[in-house]
Amino acid sequence: MKLSRSARITLGTLTAVVLLFIYVPLLLVVINSFNGDRSFGWPPRSFTLEWWSRAFQSEGVREAIATSLWVALISTAISLVLGTLLALALQRHDFFGKDVINLLVILPIALPGIVTGIALNNLFTTVLGVSLSLWTVIIAHATFCMVTVFNNAIARLRRTNSSFEEASSDLGAGIFTTFRLVTLPQLRSALVAGGLLAFALSFDEIIVTTFTIGAGQQTLPVWILNNLFRPNQAPVVNVVAVVLIIASVVPVWLAQRLSGDAIGTTRSRKKASPGITKASSTAR
């Protein structure tokens, strides 16, 4: 599409403004984490690493990081297992109510966090009567982290030919062997991408977490919220925010690179496509 000069200038300016609004504040946080002035006077007059060392020496921060990592890792692991199984069931098999289940699985990512939070809080405390803990946070996170794994896995399964699985079965492999030797290698990069996204989602989640976390426990975002308005903690909060930025951006960036397609399979799929199209058109 050819755009006129004025349209290009307008769109370019808009893009620049939007990107500035997103990234300038982030940059500010990063700079302020090194700002020597305790009240963040602008422009910064001196540079210091004090806040960084204070942050790493803080028991509260270290515990919060460890908690967030633990929660993110376990909920990602649960999401990987359940998301893959769901994707396999919904893509490779036909059964009654399939479309409904498909929708129900994706829905949690669209639900407002506050709704998920309140609903799960009610379920855990009043219906099930379990006390809130890190495990309730993990379960809560898994409900929506699962979706990113599921979406990545099902997109990959749609593109890979199910005759690979038939061929494996035909050659004598049972269901689990076929999954291990044929299906999983095809899914691997999609699962890594989905898992990284799930990790990033869980690591910086706060709304659902505040409703499902036990008393006295803190994930990193919860720690930030609790310390944001304590004047003597403000510089440390900046440091923690920078850590959060890095912990979220890196997985997403990696995921985006991986979910495109694994290098090498793109080429083979392109080459094989005439055969595949033919197979599907004359299959029955």
């Binding site: 038939e166 035909d170 290698p185 095809q186 595949i276």
Partner: peptide, 13 residues
């Protein structure tokens, strides 16, 4: 029994 598939279904990996 074994099958030779129309699109051959050779494992790409």
């Amino acid at each position: 029994v074994n099958t030779v598939f129309q699109d051959y279904a050779l494992f790409p990996h």
